[in-house]
């Protein structure tokens, strides 16, 4: 069963029942390094992107926490979905997210990613990002100031350090659920199926 309210509830709550302790000492060590080094994909998807430059430059200086921008999805750990998400943008976000290497995280900014915000009755924006991609951390506000974004990052770092986050695993485990929701709004224009070889079977280079 890949659809319906029960499935949705099951996917949303799967984090609550997941194993939260570290599996081995290597995992513990790697999580220690992961929380200290976070590469953020420099991809502004909505109006909240305007808060990201001050977060990363001299005034708020996210680099002192080990957070810095990454140039390409291949090198990124975190993608920030910064605000409302139109169908067109969602398609790019999904494609970008699937190009990132595991473990990967999603930080969602603003009320638009939680429930659609002021775009609630818009004809071309999604309402809950959580239906389409596994979100690790929400930062509230419209728009959240850089202080809030840094708070969100620090909360994310804490969860990574405690080994509590495995959203990429959740995405792979419940892929049919997410894919169905994606196809519901994007139709057949959604990215090719999630596997390592879409690049090779997508009409070549």
């Amino acid at each position: 069963m890949d659809e319906g309210f029960l499935k949705e509830q099951q996917v949303m709550e799967s984090d609550l029942n997941s194993e939260t302790s570290h599996k081995s000492s290597v995992d513990f060590l790697m999580d220690w390094f992961r929380r200290r080094s976070i590469f953020v994909l420099a991809y502004g998807t909505g109006c909240g992107a305007i808060e990201m430059p001050p977060t990363f430059t001299s005034r708020y200086d996210a680099e002192r926490l080990g957070i810095r921008g990454a140039a390409t999805p291949r090198q990124a750990d975190v993608i920030i979905v910064s605000g409302y998400c139109s169908y067109k943008t969602l398609r790019r976000i999904i494609r970008t997210y699937e190009q990132m290497a595991n473990p990967k995280y999603i930080l969602a900014l603003g009320s638009c990613t939680v429930n659609g915000g002021m775009y609630w009755d818009s004809y071309n924006t999604i309402k809950r990002l959580e239906d389409y991609l596994p979100v690790d951390m929400y930062v509230n506000g419209c728009m959240p100031r850089p202080e809030s974004i840094l708070e969100g990052f620090m909360a994310l770092q804490k969860e990574i350090g405690d080994g509590k986050i495995s959203s990429w695993q959740k995405y792979e485990d419940n892929y049919a659920f997410y894919r169905k929701n994606q196809e519901a709004v994007l139709g057949q224009t959604v990215a090719p199926a999630y596997d390592a070889d879409w690049y090779l079977y997508d009409g070549g280079l």
Binding site: M30, F33, R34, R36, S37, F39, T57, S58, D61, E63, R64, G66, R68, R74, Q75, D77, E98, Q99, M100, A101, N102, P103, A196, D197, Y199
Partner: peptide, 24 residues
């Protein structure tokens, strides 16, 4: 700016070592 610690590049390198390849 305050800037990262002097071990930051080392942390980055080890973290990347622990990531899974997404593509071949």
């Amino acid at each position: 700016r305050i800037g990262p610690t002097i071990f930051q590049s080392f942390y980055d390198s080890i973290k990347f070592f622990g990531k899974k390849e997404a593509i071949s």
